[in-house]
Computed example of a mutant assay.
Amino acid sequence: MATIEILGVLHAYELTAPTSCPHALVFIHGWLNSRGYWQPVISRLSDDLQCLSYDLRGFGESQSQVKTDFSRAQTSLSLMPTSNSALGSPIDSLYTPVAYAQDLAILLKQLNITSAWLIGHSLGGTIALWGADQIPECVKGVICINAGGGIYLKEAFEQFRSAGQKFLQVRPRWLSQVPLIDLLFTRASVVRPLDRHWARQRLIDFVVADPEAALGTLLDSTTEEEINRLPELVSQLKQPVYFLAGAEDKVMEPKYVRHLASFHRLFQYCGDNVLEIPNCGHLAMLEQPDEVADRIRSIVISH
């Protein structure tokens, strides 16, 4: 594991060796996850394509708080490229998808990655879309995995936010030491039970996530304003955007994936930017790593 400082915050990351392909693959994990979930896919791709995975601020092994007393907003303005999008807006929270996209832009700049495909899971998919908007000269395309939406259903989102807050309240550090507790994480949000190793990792990531970051990302990414901005964001992106949907995903159902994808020009013209993975739930990169890796390779090479 390597670390790099972004706006005063240490981030953990892993970068594989360069290859003959000019584009790097940048993997962005979802809520309460960490970079390790991408390893089954990266191990299948890294011989042909350089792969970068990192822990989002406040998750995994990345810190949450700025160690110094400078203003994040002022510093980000001086380091960030200027977006041409009418959707660009100042950061009013540390935990919006836009704020995390700015972290990503600075990370790529500091690692001298000038040509990248962004691959995001769930919340990471939203961050990837904003990354494509913020640094279009660097991002050549986006692949969203188990990510979609763009329809704000008031009652459903209020219930989701309430349940999420209650979920976060029940995670003392000693929870990870309770015998067999990790078995609960073998079945959550997946079609077939995960290997015990991954259940253990899910439990660890759930327990160690910074409380402010965990709650902040939950609340700031599910507001009515944020949800309603997604279709407009996708419609304005000039890069190719693909969506991999789990056919049995109950967290982000395929119909919501197809809805968001429909706002992109590729879907309007030829309809091939939504790829459904059979017998797959909400953790496609763990449930179907061969299929996900093959899809990613095929998409990137085709462009």
Rank of each mutant, 00 (worst) to 15 (best):
9 V>C: 11
9 V>D: 04
14 E>S: 12
14 E>W: 09
17 A>P: 05
18 P>F: 12
32 L>Y: 02
32 L>Q: 07
36 G>K: 05
54 Y>F: 15
56 L>A: 05
62 S>W: 02
70 F>S: 06
70 F>R: 09
73 A>K: 07
75 T>M: 13
79 L>G: 02
84 N>P: 02
90 P>V: 14
97 P>L: 03
98 V>M: 12
100 Y>M: 15
112 N>M: 09
113 I>W: 06
113 I>V: 11
114 T>D: 14
119 I>Y: 05
123 L>S: 11
125 G>W: 06
127 I>G: 01
127 I>A: 08
137 E>R: 11
137 E>Y: 01
138 C>P: 01
138 C>T: 15
143 I>K: 03
148 G>E: 05
148 G>V: 06
155 E>H: 15
156 A>W: 10
157 F>Y: 15
162 S>Y: 14
167 F>T: 12
169 Q>K: 15
178 V>S: 03
178 V>W: 09
183 L>N: 08
183 L>S: 07
191 V>Q: 11
197 H>R: 13
198 W>I: 04
199 A>L: 03
201 Q>R: 10
204 I>A: 03
206 F>I: 04
207 V>W: 03
218 L>R: 00
218 L>W: 03
222 T>M: 11
227 I>F: 08
234 V>P: 00
236 Q>I: 08
249 D>T: 08
251 V>E: 09
254 P>Q: 06
256 Y>I: 07
257 V>K: 00
262 S>D: 14
263 F>T: 03
273 N>W: 05
273 N>M: 09
278 P>W: 10
288 Q>G: 06
289 P>Q: 04
291 E>W: 04
296 I>S: 00
300 V>S: 07
